[in-house]
Design a protein around this nucleic acid. Sequence first.
DNA 1: CCGGATTTTGACCGATCGGTCAGAACCTGA
DNA 2: TCAGGTTCTGACCGATCGGTCAAAATCCGG
Lengths: 184, 184
Amino acid sequence: MSLHDQLREIALTEFASAGYAATSLQRIADLAGTSKASVLYHYASKEQLLADAMAPALDELTAIVSGIGDVAADRAQRIAFLERFVDALLAHREVVHLIVNQSATQQDVPAFARAQALMRELSEAFELAAGSTLEKLRYGIALAGAAYTLAASDLLGLDSPPVDEIRPALNTVLRELLAPESKD
Amino acid sequence: MSLHDQLREIALTEFASAGYAATSLQRIADLAGTSKASVLYHYASKEQLLADAMAPALDELTAIVSGIGDVAADRAQRIAFLERFVDALLAHREVVHLIVNQSATQQDVPAFARAQALMRELSEAFELAAGSTLEKLRYGIALAGAAYTLAASDLLGLDSPPVDEIRPALNTVLRELLAPESKD
DNA sequence: CCGGATTTTGACCGATCGGTCAGAACCTGA
DNA sequence: TCAGGTTCTGACCGATCGGTCAAAATCCGG
């Protein structure tokens, strides 16, 4: 793999585990066995390195949220959305960790601002779908809980089960909350 | 109110909204209309200022988690715990925001390490209570979702409903997930 | 009014960070 | 072998930060 790609992967892992602000370019360079100046040759700035590392996940999540459909009325569409959402969370756990744990306090960084805008778009879509405070909370708890639990499991040192065990369980819990059989 | 107490409140609000690392002692001093050196006269260090600001909430949460009881078998105890938990979340929203959004990436800061240990203790208590992956996820989603949704609602610019509307709704959703009538 | 204790302040320090730059090293095709 | 582009590097810069310190200002009981 090229140094260019290797730097992006190392940076993503470090940003997710130690934090964007707390990860210096020098540390990324050390982990890659190169110099800080070399990192800045491949990526114009630290912000650009983060943006490139998060881009694939953000692109995919943006597509999913954009094509959310009429999630209010149609249970089938709700289930389809949840499935796509869960798949994306599992496919991009490091970026999910970044979004969930750091976008809140780093809105001056473009990539985090983009993530924050995405979360706002998602929550607004469900805000419209939900009538009562109770229902809004259900949406919030379900989606945020899924993302956060996934992101935190690594961190808390919990031995997380394999993906093909988490995926169906996640789908089950989300359906219990947002697409129960009794409804629609 | 004394400058000592005022500094703690200003710091807590800034730490929660802008982030601990991103909030300089100079900014706290400016907001309080005093000098940076004065802040460091009242609090030995930035870390100590954070620790003092978070202490009341952490103490209360620690007490709740310690007295968690046999949450596995007894539905009544589970409901009692959830009620205390929700009350604490609502009473200390700013600290909850801090814990949820920043403790992950600041474990070298003692107060955040303490928060992290608390979360681990809580998750381990439920880890024992839960038999299957599905049940573990239910606990994770419920508790993390409640905390994160509460913390994020301020941030995303959502107009959050008044507390006496959120409290019963939160309790309802958590009971649906963790203490359904059908069980026990 | 005085004197000791408390509180406040500006100047300063060392460390760290992201980023710049000129040149060295390296690779590649003619 | 040589030339031109690509990649890499160490030295350096300006800014910011948390924290120190001695001196000034303020407060308060006798």
